[in-house]
Design a protein around this nucleic acid. Structure first.
Lengths: 330, 330
DNA sequence: TTGTAGGCGTTATCAA
DNA sequence: TTGATAACGCCTACAA
């Protein structure tokens, strides 16, 4: 918030300093300025001219104007990351940070956009911003994918790199190996993670079927409203036979379950086994979890985006992204 | 990640459908197309022409091209939110979401950019993206502010709306009123919140001085590494006289302190009083805190951004954003 | 009610 | 080694 009284109503929107201004003042042509400013490959510019142009550009305070450049070139240096919510979880945040760092080195900028079809159709976005690459963090519906593919931007899906269903399977497999036969499943309710949540649950169900134990008893827990864990705990305890272990959608939900247990004087891993997914920092005290290898995941996303930028075929995302980490809670 | 084999190396970057194409196919002028597409105010277009243009635009798959529009208009419909890290806390995320919703209704798009001077000088950003308004989430250094003010974008600081130091004061005042005289202070170590953290601590110190009690004993806790709470707890316990209450930088840190206590068999609010700031959902079970009124805060930010867009003077941010909420922990 | 024409800032092409 | 020119797609004053 601008508290300075003098810049209120700012009446003087400084005229833009164009490369033509720089050319005029330097006494050279616009083309020459462009060559210098872009280190035009295959062009030889005399050192004196180069320095002259650079110094006047500096002196006049010239900043290249992105829209003009993009219009001329037909493509921008923008990577648009589509997110369902700005607060979208430890792993995705980390991936985005790594992506941002890697792309800054290539002269690209990563911008995050929270998309919400009910707010504005995705297709209207292209009239507002013209990204070179669109990278979807998290799952996308089929129509959403179609709209992005219809745009002129290249399209990278981060979803699909890590087999989410496999994470659910691994949770069940571990709990089974520890003797648990009646499982609960703590779903997250946030629409932002719905697609991922469904895949994880599907994986868990598949593992149960394969191992010959009943489907997990699914309860929904709201990350925005932690007290919702209590009714879930009640129902798992009331089940017949009683639930002895719970797969949580992720570590956050798992920690909520553990906290709920603790506040009732129960001990996670003893009175009820709890296993998460992600291995977020807060989990590292006591939570058994399926670690998401953030570094490997980030590398895969970066490779995919760089390939898209360079118009190269998408790399094979196969890799080992999931690892069991056993701690106290299960 | 694009698994489809057929779109690898995509050799046919479809030619862009321009408004001129729509004009040609419709058999009208480019101007008419523009009038129809923009609902040009003060222009009357016959219903038949309008429908013709709209339908051919649709049929040809015309999407307006943002850079050309921006170049012509001299301004974009982009609001750039500057963040120190994509994972930047409950309150800021909520504010950004509200801002996003409000601006979508005005035909603007909110894009979040993680800025990191060591990665890329802020000034280079304007060659990549040309926002109409820049809104800084969280504090900014003086040179950073200067660079933004030198750009052609309008500039809104969300920092400064809420008096962060007052939050620190309120923590101390409450703990004092409950009889505490020897306080600890749990700082967050993240550089993303450094400026805010310093203001809150300064407020706490000022309140201590005013009330005639010693400065709080400051310990740093790492949000990314929860075990750092333990040495902090040790030092507060070892102080002479012993620390009886702790102000935490925010609820997250406060919860870490409470969790650390619990894991030692101690009870927050009994063995050590703990007070947070923000009132995040997870705090709502048992944490005493200074609530940050997200709705009021969001409204203030939205008002500031809208004023900037409309070139109106910045509104007065004064308001009542902070409220004490007493629960079990202090 | 619709069309014509010019220009926004940049860069690539071609000529000098 | 440098300069003139055209074009990217869109919008709008002015003319018809």
């Amino acid at each position: 918030m601008t508290a300075d009284p003098q810049d209120e109503g700012s009446p003087a929107p400084r005229k833009r300093v164009t490369s033509a201004d720089v050319a005029r003042v330097s006494g050279v042509s616009r083309a020459t300025v462009s060559y210098v400013l872009n280190n035009a490959p295959g062009r030889v510019i005399s050192e004196s001219t180069r320095e002259l142009v650079l110094s006047t550009a500096q002196r006049l305070g010239h900043v290249p104007y992105a829209p003009a450049r993009t219009l001329r070139l037909g493509k921008s240096n923008i990577v648009l990351a589509l997110v369902r919510d700005f607060a979208f979880g430890f792993v995705s945040h980390r991936v985005l940070r790594e992506l941002d760092t890697a792309l800054a080195a290539r002269g690209f900028v990563v911008l995050a956009h929270r998309f919400d079809e009910s707010l504005r159709p995705l297709s209207d976005l292209w009239g507002l911003i013209s990204p070179n690459v669109v990278v979807a963090m998290g799952g996308l519906t089929v129509p959403e994918q179609a709209i992005i593919e219809d745009s002129h931007a290249k399209f990278v899906r981060s979803h699909g790199i890590v087999p989410q269903d496999r994470a659910g399977e691994m949770q069940v497999e571990y709990l089974y190996s520890r003797g648990h036969r009646v499982l609960g499943y703590a779903m997250a309710d946030s629409p932002a993670v719905q697609l991922v949540a469904e895949e994880r649950l599907a994986g868990a169900r598949r593992a149960c079927a394969r191992l010959g134990i009943p489907d997990p008893i699914v309860e929904t827990v709201s990350v925005d409203n932690p007290v919702t864990v209590f009714p879930a705990l009640d129902r798992w305890a009331a089940a017949e036979p009683k639930v002895t272990a719970v797969c949580a959608h992720n570590d956050e939900v798992a920690i909520m379950v553990c906290t709920g247990l603790a506040s009732r004087g129960l001990v996670p891993g003893k009175d009820l086994a709890v296993i998460g997914i992600d291995n977020i920092p807060m989990a590292r005290i006591a939570l058994t979890t399926i670690e998401m290898d953030v570094e490997a995941y980030s590398k895969a996303v970066i490779a995919a985006v760089l390939a898209a930028i360079d118009d190269k075929p998408q790399p094979d995302p196969a890799g080992d992204y999931l690892h069991l980490i056993v701690r106290d809670s299960a």
